[in-house]
Structures are given as C-alpha cells and as structure tokens.
Design a protein around this nucleic acid. Structure first.
Lengths: 210, 210
DNA sequence: AAAAAAAGAATGATCGTTCATTCTTCTGCT
DNA sequence: AGCAGAAGAATGAACGATCATTCTTTTTTT
C-alpha cells in the first residue's frame, strides 16, 4: 500500500517534469524550429539543467514526437467539439481556433508548428506515419458529419459527393491556418465573410447554376 | 572592348556557379530542411569544396534567401500563365502544378519548401517581409482576374465580393498543396472532382440557394 | 544512511566560416 | 608560337562555437 502511494507520488512528479519540459520545448520549437532549437535553450526555458532532461526523455527526437502527438491530440479534441453547432456558430468557432497562435498553449495547434511538422514528415518516416493516421482519422470524421442525417446533427449529404467535400473542408481550414500564420495581421472581417460565404456551399447538398 | 567580353565571360561563369550551388542547396533543403542541411552536405551535392561556396555567397542565410526568392518568382510565373484558360483547363493546370514535387526543379514550388519557408518567416523578419510582399502581390493579381470583365479574360465578379473570393482561392490552393505534400499518394481523381466542384462556385458571381 | 534528483562539467561530433595553399587559366612579352 | 608571371578559382585543413548526449559530482528527499 505504502509502496503504491509512494510510486504514485513519484509518478506524478515524473509526469509534471515531463510536462514542464514539453511546455518549454514547444515554446522553443515555435520560436526557432525543431532543429534550430537546442537542448540547452530548452533546458534554460524549463529552468533546469540540460542533463536532467535526459532523465525524462531518451532523446531530442523523442521530445519532438511527444510535442507532435500532443498537438495532434489537441486538434482532434477541437474537431470533436466543433461539429455540434450551426453553420454560423461554426464560422465563429473556426475563426477562434484559427486565431490561437500562442507558443505555449498545448490545447491548440500552433500554425508554425503545423508547418514545421508537416515539413518534417517529408523526411522522418515515423512522423509521416503519425500524420497520415491523423489525417485519415480527421477526414473520415468530417465525412461522417457531412453524411449523417440532419436529424442526427449531420448535414445529410449524399454519399457520392462526401469525400470531395470533406477534402475541400480540410484543405480550406488548413489553407486558412497557413495564411493566418503568414499574415498575422490579416483582416478578420475578411476571413469571416469568406468563411460565411463558402461554408454554406460546402455543407449544402448541391449547388447547381440558378 | 576586350575587357568587356572578358568580364562578361567571367560573369557567366560566376552565375553558373551560383546556380549550381543553388540547385544543390535546394535539393538539400528539401531533403533535410533549412537548418538540418549543412554547408558540407550542400558542397558535396554541388561537387565542390565547402570553402568555395563562400566565394559566391556571403553566408548560408544568403543562400536560403536566394532559394526563397527563386521559389517565389517561379510561383508568380506559374500564376501568370494560369489565368488565361477556361475553368476546366484551370482545374487541370492547378492539379499539374500541385503535383510538381521534385526536389531540384527551380521552376515550381516544392511543397516541403513552401512549408519550410512559411515556418521560417515566423522567426526571420527578412523572410517575413519577402513573403508578405509576395502574398500581397498574388492576392491582388487573383483579385484582378476575378474582377476583370469577361470580355477581357476575367470573371466579372462584383467588387464587393472579390477580396473574399481571392482569399478563398489562395487558401484553397495552398491547402491543397499542403495536403498533397502530407499525403503524396492521395487519389488524384478525388482532388480533381473536388476542384471541379468548387472552382465554378468560386468563379461565379453569386450562388444563392435555389 | 541510502536513494533519488539535479546540476553542470566533459565528450566527441558537427556546425558555419576562414585561411593558407595549390591548381588553373589567362595575359603580355619575346 | 611559346613561355613567365599575374590573377582568379578551388581546395581542404583548421578554427572557435555549439550541438546532443553522457558522466561525475553535489544536493535533496526519504
């Protein structure tokens, strides 16, 4: 019993240290990129010695992977919360989550990090695999929203156009994420009007020429 | 006279060497990223000594900037060629240029490089400035297409919806670029059907519910 | 006192960059 | 034309800095 409590307390401490390191690493990665951020800088940011990091992580690449995993998980959570809303609410929700660009927030995807990890995936097979699994899950979840009946909170799109719509939806959101990261000062009203123009089209069953 | 000829020949040689270095650097940057690619690797790829590179470029960061400048120029060229076509031709043209992912081609934007430089722009102010100028030019050119009258090869959109449409267009293309880079094996037919569904909507004056 | 946690110096490798040196090419003179 | 010598091009070793990682030592906790 005593041992179990002790182990649990130690585990809590270990977990807290790991989170501290990850928070510092994320900040450094956002500021300098995966490769340009050094272990010394991460250690300074986490206010601990460089050597200590290796008690909690085997290597720098393990930290990178942990950060990526965390970001993917956060994004999936955000996605899960999103679909249960009307189209206008969705517009606001998307803009809000596009705007979260803080370097330290582990609960939202940072734009620079998104690009950093996408670029890294073209070189590191392990990261590529993780991203591919994530992408497949996201697109199939979006496809689910679109094809589910309206009575069940979906949009009732016919099966044959769902995959293309899901792809367009994802590409549009990601494209906006990239754009906001490249132009942080871009007019939010412009983005809102663009979104509220295109979202109904993507979510409506058909749009023939009138 | 003799001197001018001599100078010109020497200049040609210098230019050729610079291009050789840039080609090697681009390949290395695509394969490893800006920071993980070393000058030694670039020199090896260019089949010259590391020291020689510094005869033609002041620093590694100067090479990075030259690469970025070249990619932006190539992209603008591609854009200029694109608008003079029908909507169906445009679909094909977009898919084609999205697909060019070769590491050595200086005439098209590489997807990994696109993300690498976008991420780098969030840290390096000089790169950020270059990208911002480029982005502004691209969006205003797209806006030009959209607002120009049909008789003049445009799409005759009313002024008030042009900026939002231009933004959507750019985000969609960039989102697709990112997606193809992350999922190189993605079904091209899916992309084509998605594009041919959405492009007419983006290029048509209005799309009210029927 | 024993064990775990943390620090920080040390390691070898590699980084971008420079430098002294050699090789190549071209020029002007005979 | 053919050779001496200047100029430019190229090399590869060397530099100090910094990298990720390991190791020894000190501090803290139990």
């Amino acid at each position: 019993m005593t041992e179990r409590v002790h182990t649990s307390k130690a585990d809590d401490r270990i977990e807290a240290q790991r989170q501290r390191i990850l928070a510092a690493a994320q900040k450094c990665f956002v500021e300098h990129g995966f490769h340009a951020a050094s272990m010394a800088t991460i250690a300074d940011t986490a206010q601990m010695s460089a050597g200590l990091i290796y008690r909690y992580f085997k290597s720098k690449s393990e930290i990178i992977q942990a950060i990526i995993g965390r970001q993917l998980e956060a994004t999936r959570d955000k996605l899960g919360q999103m679909h249960a809303s009307t189209v206008t609410d969705m517009t606001a929700g998307i803009i809000e989550s596009l705007d979260e660009q803080g370097p330290c927030d582990e609960h939202s995807m940072n734009g620079a990090l998104f690009m950093e990890m996408s670029a890294e995936a073209t070189r590191d097979p392990q990261i590529a695999t993780a991203l591919r699994a994530f992408d497949a899950a996201v697109r199939s979840e979006v496809a689910n929203w679109l094809s589910r009946r309206k009575e069940q909170g979906g949009y009732g799109l016919p099966q044959d156009i769902v995959p293309a719509r899901a792809l367009l939806f994802v590409c549009l959101i990601e494209g906006l994420k990239v754009r906001i990261t490249r132009e942080p000062g871009i007019d939010r009203a412009l983005i809102e009007s663009a979104l509220s123009e295109i979202l109904p089209v993507l979510l409506e069953p058909a749009h023939k020429d009138c």
